[in-house]
Simulated scan of single mutants.
Amino acid sequence: MTESGGLRISPIQQIEFLKRLDDGKLPFSKSSMSILKDVMIVDNKSNYVIRAKTGSGKQDGKYIGWYVSYVTTKDNVFYFSDCIQSTEKNPDFNNAHIEIANTILDEIGVLK
Rank of each mutant, 00 (worst) to 15 (best):
T73W: 01
G55P: 10
I64W: 00
Q59M: 15
S69L: 14
K58Y: 01
S86N: 13
V71W: 01
Y67P: 00
N47S: 13
S69Q: 11
S56L: 12
N47Q: 13
K62W: 04
Q85T: 05
V71P: 06
A52M: 15
Q59T: 10
S69P: 07
V68R: 06
Y63V: 06
V71E: 06
K53W: 08
G55D: 05
V49L: 08
K58L: 12
D75P: 04
G65P: 02
F80P: 01
Y79C: 04
Y63Q: 05
G65N: 08
Y63A: 02
Y70G: 07
S81R: 06
Y48R: 10
V77H: 08
Y70W: 08
F78K: 14
D60V: 06
N76V: 15
I64K: 13
Y79V: 04
I84E: 04
W66R: 03
N47A: 12
G61I: 15
A52S: 14
C83P: 03
S56W: 13
V77T: 05
Q85N: 08
G57P: 03
G57I: 05
W66F: 01
S56A: 14
D82G: 07
I64D: 01
Q85G: 14
F78V: 14
Q85S: 15
V68T: 12
K62S: 09
G65K: 02
K62V: 07
Q85V: 04
V49A: 01
T72V: 14
Y79W: 00
K62F: 07
T73I: 08
Y48P: 03
F80M: 05
A52T: 09
V77W: 03
N47D: 15
I84R: 00
G57S: 04
A52H: 09
I64N: 07
I84V: 15
S69M: 14
V49N: 01
I50L: 11
W66Q: 01
I84M: 08
I64L: 13
D75E: 10
F80W: 01
Y48M: 09
F80C: 05
G65E: 10
K53I: 12
T54L: 11
V49Q: 09
K74E: 10
N44D: 11
G55N: 07
K58H: 02
N44V: 11
F80A: 01
S69D: 13
N44M: 13
R51H: 07
V49M: 08
Y63C: 04
Q59G: 11
S69I: 10
Y63W: 04
K74S: 11
Y70A: 08
V49K: 05
I84W: 00
C83Y: 00
W66E: 00
Y48L: 05
K62G: 02
K53H: 07
S46L: 15
Y79A: 02
V68L: 15
K62A: 09
D75N: 11
T72F: 06
V77L: 11
N47V: 14
Y79Q: 00
A52G: 09
K62Y: 10
K53M: 11
V68S: 13
R51L: 09
A52Y: 05
D75H: 08
K74L: 09
